[in-house]
Design a protein around this nucleic acid. Sequence first.
DNA 1: ATAGGGTTAG
Length: 734
Amino acid sequence: MYVTCGEVELARLIFDQNHVKSVFLWNSMIRYYSWNGPFDEGIDMYYKMIDLGIRPNKFTFPFVLKACSGLKALEEGREIHGHVKEVGLDSDVYVCTALIDLYAKCGCLTEARELFDKMTKRDVVAWNAMIAGSSLHGVYVDTIELVLEMQGMGISPNSSTFVAVLPAVGQAIKLNQGRIIHGYCVRRGFDNDGLVATSLLDMYGKCECLRYSCIIFGNMGVRNEITWSAMIGAYVQCGHMGEALMVFDRMCAGDNVNMTPPTLGSVLRACAKLTDVSRGRRLHGYLIKSGFMLDIMIENSLLAMYSKCGILEDAIRLFDEMKLKDSVSYSAIISGCVQNGNAEEALVIYREMLVSRVVPDMATMVGILPACAHLAALEHGRSNHCYLTIRGYALDTSVGNALIDMYSKCGQVDSSRKIFDRMPRRDIITWNTMIAGYGLHGRGREALLLFNDLRNEGLGIDCVTFISLLFACSHSGLVCEGKHWFAEMTQEYNIVPRMEHYICMVDLLGRGGFLNEACNFIGKMPLKPDLRVWGALLGACRIHKNLKLGEEVSKKIQMLGPEGSGNFVLLSNMYSAAGRWNEAANVRVVQMEKGFKKSPGCSWIEICGSIHAFIGGDQSHPQSQLIYEKLEGYLVEMKKLGYQADVGFALQDVEQEEKERSLLYHSEKLAIVFGILNKSSNKPIFVTKNLRICGDCHSAIKFITTITNRAITVRDASRFHHFSDGTCNCGDFW
DNA sequence: ATAGGGTTAG
């Protein structure tokens, strides 16, 4: 009676006072703990009972197994399964059901299924346990089949059946199936059950059918913390972050509702998406005070919140303080580093992860590949590709997308295409990434061909597709095609052009030499052109040496406020190229006065898995002396072939020879020569630069390919340059 | 019944 009424202390008192305890007395206590926790207390009692030589009966096992299932204590569960066999209870329906539940919850679905198939008589609870297990593992088809099979055998589903099925329906985003179930629940009156209603609410949320979630939530008379949490989760899932926070506030304003980790996890996700750091920090404080920080899910959510809000230092601090780290923690911090522009740190942390023996999963790998892509670390990328293949992840769509991107950014766009062709399922990101890859390499024709294939696929073509396509056209001089698809985009695909599309168009027209048309185009834009639009035009002015327009554009840029993307350098270079040194210098002075810093030019190369970086005039590398000697040697030979230093890029108004020298030490030249010195003579050289390649380097590298008879590839801030036999595939329009 | 990390363009 005391156990049933929840008076566990009184029950325990009576239990402890009885010196001779029957199995019934033990069962009562174990039952209490297995239903209310603490679960380990229930398991402890079971073992005490065994030690005292008391034989468990068919009631004991379901209770203790439920405790094991609650703790996901698979090892104990297996041992108790052994006891079940010893006492010959393995065909009891209740015991069997408890075993199925245990195995399913511990991830051993096959074992659960074996037990289930061996059962001669199955009641609705047994079916529900199997259905819940299958649903938990997200095997949607099997789950639905089980329900149908159950009905075929004349067993009618009860409300628990639907509570068990609905998560699988939501996860598989099977809205129609969910509606059918909803209808069935209404007919049988199950929808008045709070658990069923919450499951339905959640299912609709996962199917992005927020309206229904809201209706169900509004109709619910009694709401507990799980209902609130499901509603908040539904808003977050559907991208309505502000409303999610409002519901959270309503929940906090009311009483009788507890905070739970899932609620807080969803709220943190909303803060991250809204980049609402101040709210995130307030929550962090609350979490510390309320002891929620012991939950690794909560810590991971905080990590992600800080890194998505761009505060990598706080994310790293939190990460370092975490006592327990799982693969999610590592994935979150690795992606955080990459998203905040620190790909090297991402690789360092990935290494730490391997040392700590935390096994990387798919999300980790999808996070580490962009780090390799960013650094153009092909060898790291390849080794991760191997790992993915070994683990059987390589055919996953997101993994494939990340691989395509990595290979194309590492200069191997043909490898990207191989991955693309072998992928069993492609989504729009797959196509966009591949199109962008071709664009990056100046292979616009192939990008257009691929786009044609995409049009026959029936996939939802999105605004990113057109950004990639227009970019590809502009870097391959395909002006007509670009104009055509820009028009089609608005007319046929009903995509409202965003700033990015306008940037691509200005770039396309300007780069193609249609500077007036580009100006007119800007004039007709419905959006206020931003700095990047003017930057694209300025770039075109430099290519086509239109200093007058360049000056005007530059004024516009300066009026728009601070910028760090090198537009000052562009203008200054244009003046220098025209021999107007004073004005060139003046631009630099203005730049400095206004406090705009251009990030220093930096180039790097990966050799045997290590990355060697150089800045202009760098002498810190151990091989520096050798590099400079080699460069001097090349200079002599280059001059014999007709090379003239393009001193317009040297900036300072100094003596000719001095200028030549300063150009010679540009970071990309240093990295290339280092590569030549350290890679065998038949290997191509691949260098990456953080800014756009310098014009003098661009022509010097052509000569170097002739002298050394090597293919040299440079990835700069905007595209790839493939040099060989004295030419570059960009057609000198970079 | 509710819950954390991932891929494209700029």
